[in-house]
Computed example of a mutant assay.
Amino acid sequence: MSDKAFIFDMDGVIIDSEHIHAVTKVQAVRSFGVDVSEADLDLRSYVGRSAKSFFSDMIAKYPELGDDWEVLAKRKHELYQRILREDAGLKPIAGIPELLARLKAKGYRIGLGSSSVMANIQLVLNRFGIMDYFDAIAAGSEVEHAKPEPDVYLLAARRLGVATENCTVIEDAGAGVMAAKAAGMRCIAIRNPNSGAQDLSRADMIIDSYEEIVL
């Protein structure tokens, strides 16, 4: 077993899905009777953060949504999963399958630490045929504190059996970079235009393509 690991975020890193999250968040809020637009919800500030963070804030802003963020999140996840199942055009971000293959060939442990729920993670990885590359998965729904806190990356490292200082995280969001650094891990940030203007300055390396990662 390798003593080194790469841990991937999912949204914006493996799947270019921020537009799907945006659409389904708006649809979820609207389905509870509140007429909103993407601009009303300040969605860019929630990139990389959990459904709990987003819907808790929405309840505070729109009391007519009720008082249970989990009900809203459940509706959003249903809408998100429907798109993942039905959109035949969805593909992994360019270079991801090749990078995973290179990491596996070099003997690295491979993990995933996402703010998403486990059902969404499994659906994405299985849909793209890359589940078998991953030695451990940690979902945001399994930890107490969401990114930018380090909880999900610490859980992934524990499940991989790799010391945090030997883990490299791949992120596309400022909150995720902060989480990785708070966990004591190296962080490579990939610029994803669809993730908005993210502050990636704390990352150890910033790239525009996975081909830039030299193993």
Rank of each mutant, 00 (worst) to 15 (best):
R44E: 14
P92L: 03
D40M: 05
V29W: 09
F55W: 09
D35Q: 11
A94C: 01
D87I: 07
R44Q: 10
L90N: 02
P63T: 08
L103H: 04
L41A: 05
A28C: 08
P92H: 03
A94P: 01
G33N: 06
R75D: 09
R102T: 03
R49T: 05
R85S: 09
R85E: 09
R102C: 01
F55Q: 03
L99D: 05
R102D: 06
A94K: 13
W69I: 08
L65T: 02
Y46V: 04
S53R: 10
F32Y: 15
D35I: 03
L43P: 13
Q27L: 14
A73C: 14
F55G: 03
E70M: 14
E38S: 12
A51N: 15
H77M: 15
A39F: 05
S45Y: 11
E86W: 01
S53C: 10
E86H: 00
L103F: 07
V71D: 07
E98V: 00
A28I: 08
F54I: 07
A73E: 13
D35W: 05
S31T: 07
R30V: 08
V47G: 00
K106N: 14
M58G: 05
R102E: 11
Y80M: 05
G107A: 11
V34R: 04
I59G: 04
L72M: 10
F55S: 03
Y80P: 02
R44S: 08
A60M: 04
Y80G: 03
I96H: 06
R44A: 10
I93P: 01
E98Y: 02
S37N: 03
P63A: 10
K74W: 06
D67P: 02
E38V: 03
A39P: 00
L84M: 13
G95S: 02
K52G: 00
G89Q: 09
K76D: 13
A101Y: 00
L41I: 06
E78F: 08
R82I: 02
A39R: 09
D40S: 11
A101Q: 09
L65F: 08
A101I: 00
V47T: 10
V71L: 15
D68V: 13
F32H: 14
I83G: 00
Y108E: 05
Y62A: 06
R75C: 11
D67G: 12
R75Q: 14
F55K: 05
K74S: 15
A105G: 07
F55E: 04
L90H: 01
H77G: 06
R102H: 04
S53M: 12
G33E: 01
D42K: 12
A39D: 14
L41P: 10
E70D: 13
V29Y: 07
V36T: 10
R30T: 07
Q81P: 00
L90F: 05
F54H: 09
A28W: 08
K104Y: 02
L65D: 04
P63F: 07
L90A: 03
D87R: 09
V34I: 14
L43R: 11
H77V: 15
R85G: 00
G66K: 13
A94N: 09
F54Y: 12
A88L: 10
L41Q: 06
K106L: 05
L41F: 09
S50Y: 12
D68I: 10
R44K: 07
H77S: 15
D68E: 15
R75E: 14
A39T: 04
G95E: 01
G66A: 13
I59W: 11
Y62P: 07
A73D: 14
A105E: 13
K104A: 12
K74E: 15
D87P: 11
V36W: 12
A73N: 15
G66I: 12
P63E: 07
G48E: 13
